[in-house]
Simulated scan of single mutants.
Amino acid sequence: MSLTVQLQTMLVMVAMGGWLGMAIDTYSRLIRGRKWKQWITVINDSLFWIIQGLLVFYILLQINEGEMRFYILLALLCGYSCYRALLYRIYQNILEATIQAIIKTYKFCKAALFMLVINPTKGLLKLLYTVCMMILSFLITVIFFLLKVLYTPFIWLGRGIWRLLPKEKLDKFSNKLGFFKKIKNYIMRWFTKKGS
């Protein structure tokens, strides 16, 4: 490995150390800060470190064909230490401002969606429902009125015919109906006795 490649490797590993510091802080703020079950936390931590390790190895592979030496680890630690000493507060402020901006943007978009789309749609649907119910009530009223107009002459006709019928025939008919009622009552009593 030439001196230039070694110098490039050192500088890139210092930068990767700073990247690791920022990634750890971002991960802690977004994922670790939440209350997860223990096994989910273990899976999240494992995936985080596997991804970071693969990223460092990929960068190392691009620079010096994946040769791992002790000074590379020292460069990583040096980069992480520099980040902690010099850039930690700045990055924390930028991260928090970014998160708050994303949250405010999300809340604004949600409020705008409700105000411009969902609430007008609800109002329109309520209006349509009210109009449909009014139309339906009107149609039902008209139909009942028309039915009343249609069957009222038949009622009058039936009453007129009833008045024209002789009283003796009506009495005989009602007696026959009484006879049928007695038979029905007798059969019902017989069935109830059989059932018990």
Rank of each mutant, 00 (worst) to 15 (best):
S2I: 05
T4L: 10
L7K: 13
M10N: 11
L11A: 15
V12S: 15
V14R: 10
A15R: 05
G17E: 09
A23Y: 13
D25P: 01
Y27S: 07
L30E: 02
R34C: 00
K35T: 00
I40R: 00
T41A: 10
N44T: 12
N44D: 05
D45M: 02
L47E: 02
I51D: 10
L54C: 12
F57C: 01
Y58M: 05
N64P: 11
F70T: 01
Y71L: 01
I72H: 14
L73T: 15
A75E: 08
L76A: 03
S81E: 06
Y83P: 02
A85M: 11
L86A: 14
R89H: 15
R89F: 09
Y91G: 05
Y91W: 11
Q92N: 13
Q92M: 14
Q92A: 09
N93R: 11
L95Q: 09
A97P: 07
I99L: 04
I99V: 11
Q100K: 15
K104F: 07
K107R: 08
A112I: 01
F114V: 04
M115Q: 02
N119Y: 10
P120M: 13
G123E: 12
K126E: 04
K126F: 04
T130W: 09
M133R: 10
I135N: 07
L139N: 04
I140L: 04
V142I: 11
V142N: 13
V142K: 13
I143W: 12
I143V: 06
F144C: 11
K148N: 13
Y151D: 06
T152H: 02
F154E: 01
I155H: 10
W156G: 08
W156I: 10
G158N: 10
R159M: 08
R163N: 14
L165Y: 02
E168S: 10
K169T: 13
D171M: 07
K172G: 00
K176C: 03
F179W: 14
F179V: 15
K182T: 08
I187A: 01
T192V: 07
K193P: 03
S196T: 05
